[in-house]
Nucleic acid binder design. Structure first.
Length: 626
RNA sequence: GCGCCCUUAGCUCAGUUGGAUAGAGCAACAGCCUUCUAAGCUGUGGGCCGGUGGUUCGAAUCCACCAGGGCGCGCCA
């Protein structure tokens, strides 16, 4: 459902009707017990507070246990001695030495040693890592779920395209990034709502309606030429793409000639504009939602700008802001250095966004008295705030970057600073084919629609590839490479790793007839025999999954999941490849049932983690490659 | 002119929010494999992290300035 009938709007002047909400960033986030690193951090912290009983909380919060980059440094390292040196008035080396002494007695720690400027390097007993396998197999895809979100309500708004035509590549990145980010936040413990804002008010959709009306007249057999028609259209005839022909036909079928003059000319807009507009928008939204469905995106809420305007919500918000003294009639300075040629001082209805960190105050009304896009968007965000979200995230194209500070200001004003606003900007995607860029032109009709792209390379390749870059960086999307079945294509490489895991487990079923090799049973298998470096490397990677989820969610960077999965797949393929030269290193060894079962537990756990990562990305974990 | 984002190996990009000797893929070079798990595998070389200062135990990461690229800059959304 779209906009609710009567949004209850928060009063900025009233602060106490907001329920207390948990802080967005808890000072001491609840420890995730299945995160090995988080657990060891607790161990280190306990030792540290024993050495420094009056350790300040803010220092304790800076203590971290991280994976080492160099295996010579052990498995994990902590900065505890360095960050607490100042507060303890002791040199880092002395604290490190004391930590080493206490930690060496630990159950999971094989050795602890001081190194470098004050690091304490920890080498864990292999058992500590292997103990993760039953945890992973028991928890299944829930392994890696974080609690940092603590149920904080987040609204992620994405796509939000003008419903003026089919979706194209430009919309696609935001759709994928938004959807994956929402999934990621949800895995990190946030209460997430996925939302689409339909920009179905304003000049663009009016132009769309005229274009659809032209197709309608054509369908009824008008004698007008396109030139004659276009000369009557305010602002000229836009949206000349073929995709509106069908809409015109549907309009003609539904309304016959009743929307035109008797001689099939242009009737007065009062007679048809709203009807045609609504009809066309509905048709476009049907198409867009179908495109999104094929892309694997299904949002929880679709909000309509038009309905928002119709309910007068925008006017109410402006009145309310005016009552709070945040609206005034004024004249803006021309932009410094580059004054538009037609610049003239003009009084406008302005929002005091500068009071909330913006550079200039922003206009809310156009000269014809209608609302600016910003004004309606303020009302829309007020609506979202009234629905009780703690955090609002908008996924925007990079060309909207300049828009962020004013929206941030508006949210601050509307929520009395209680609701956090954040934007994720998506840079442009350049489509490449045969080594050449594919030029996009809406008018020439040569743009690549999302549907074409999905037909050509498939949902999984589109989604994964869109997530192989930081969304803030420009991206080349090479149509030839995303279908390559080689290591340089991460989609293939990761899916292949999962398929190989499943393949091993299928083959194992023949080796152990009558034994159910499901995750529950494998969780009970002793894994002491997993001693080799490649095995332990793989398990260490699996141990990184929870903190990867947490860090990616906190940074709001879903692409990190893609990179993690690529590394995980590499570790697995390496293990698999050992069996190529030496068949005694393959997973399945009929003369070693116990060792084989242990390896199967590792393989099954790997499959679980790959699967749960792919689920976040919205990519199918395939059972076999075809 | 101002603001925001970006600059890392020949190319495309990571870099665990300030940690130790900066990583991966491609390309290059050198081997292996000729299909029982090769839609390949192993190894090597490759760097002034755009530049200059600063902050501190410690900087690709934070700050200032500069250079180059992208985006934006009153009634477009």
């Amino acid at each position: 459902m779209a906009i609710r009938d009567r949004p209850t709007l928060p009063r900025t002047s009233v602060s106490d009707h907001h329920r207390p909400r948990p802080p967005t960033r808890a000072k001491t986030p609840p420890m995730n017990p299945s995160d090995l690193y988080a657990r060891l951090r607790e161990t280190v912290l306990a030792a540290l507070t024993h050495i420094i009983p009056d350790l300040p909380a803010d220092i304790a919060a800076r203590v971290e246990v991280t994976p080492t980059r160099d295996p010579a440094h052990g498995d994990m390292a902590t900065n505890a001695a360095m960050v607490s040196a100042k507060a303890a008035r002791q040199p880092p080396a002395k604290i490190a030495a004391a930590l080493v002494q206490r930690l060496n007695a630990g159950a999971e720690i094989a050795t602890a040693e001081a190194a470098g400027p004050g690091f304490v390097n920890l080498r864990l007993r292999p058992d500590a890592f292997r103990a993760l396998l039953p945890i992973i197999l028991t928890q299944g895809e829930a392994y890696g779920d974080a609690t940092t979100g603590a149920g904080i309500k987040i609204n992620v708004e994405y796509v939000s395209a003008n419903p003026t035509g089919p979706m194209h590549i430009g919309h696609c990145r935001g759709a994928v990034v938004g959807d994956a980010l929402a999934n990621l936040l949800s895995k990190a413990g946030y209460a997430v709502t996925k939302e689409y804002y339909i920009n179905d008010a304003g000049a663009q959709v009016t132009a769309l309606a005229w274009a659809a009306y032209w197709r309608y007249l054509q369908a009824t057999g008008t004698k007008m030429t396109e030139e004659a028609f276009a000369s009557e259209v305010p602002g000229g005839l836009q949206y000349k793409g073929e995709y509106l022909v069908e809409v015109g036909n549907a309009l003609a079928a539904r309304f016959q000639a009743s929307l035109a003059t008797p001689d099939l000319g242009i009737a007065s807009p009062e007679l048809w504009l709203d009807t045609v507009k609504g009809f066309t928008i509905d048709a476009m939204m049907t198409e867009i939602r179908e495109d999104l469905r094929r892309l694997g995106v299904e949002q929880d809420i679709y909000s309509s700008e038009r309905k928002l305007v119709a309910t007068g919500a925008a006017d109410k918000i402006i009145d309310q802001l005016r009552a709070d003294g945040l609206i005034y009639e004024g004249v803006l300075e021309p932009p410094k250095g580059k004054t538009p040629e037609d610049w003239e001082p003009r009084p406008q209805t302005l929002f005091r966004s500068t009071q909330f960190g913006d550079d200039v105050d922003r206009p809310l009304r156009k000269s014809d008295g209608s609302n600016t896009y910003f004004a309606n968007d303020i009302a829309y965000h007020a609506d979202k705030i009234s629905r009780g979200y703690d955090v609002l995230i908008d996924i925007l194209g990079a060309d909207h970057g300049g828009y962020v500070p004013r929206m941030k200001a508006a949210v601050k004003a509307l929520s009395a600073g209680k609701t956090e606003f954040g934007a994720v900007l998506c840079q442009i995607v350049h489509i490449m084919k045969g080594g050449q860029p594919v030029r996009m032109s809406k008018r020439a009709g040569t743009y690549v629609t999302l549907r074409d792209l999905l037909d050509e390379v498939g949902k999984d390749a589109v989604r994964f590839t869109m997530l192989t870059r930081n969304s803030d960086a420009q991206m080349e999307f090479d149509l030839d490479k995303v279908l390559a079945t080689t290591r340089e294509n991460p989609v293939f490489y990761v899916q292949y790793a999962h398929a190989r895991c499943r393949s091993v487990l299928r083959a194992a079923a023949e080796m152990f007839p009558g034994k159910a090799l499901d995750e529950t049973n494998l969780a009970a298998i002793p894994t002491d025999s997993l001693n080799g470096d490649p095995e332990l490397t793989l398990i260490r990677r699996l141990a990184l999954w929870p903190r990867t989820v947490e860090a990616a969610a906190q940074a709001r960077e879903p692409h990190r999941i893609a990179f993690f999965l690529y590394d995980l797949a590499a570790d697995f393929h390496m293990l698999w490849n050992r069996g190529k030269d030496d068949t005694t290193l393959r997973f399945l060894q009929s003369d070693q049932p116990a060792e084989t079962l242990a390896r199967l537990a590792l393989v099954a756990a790997t499959a679980v983690v790959i699967r749960s990562g792919l689920v976040v990305m919205g990519v199918a974990p395939v059972e076999e490659m075809r």
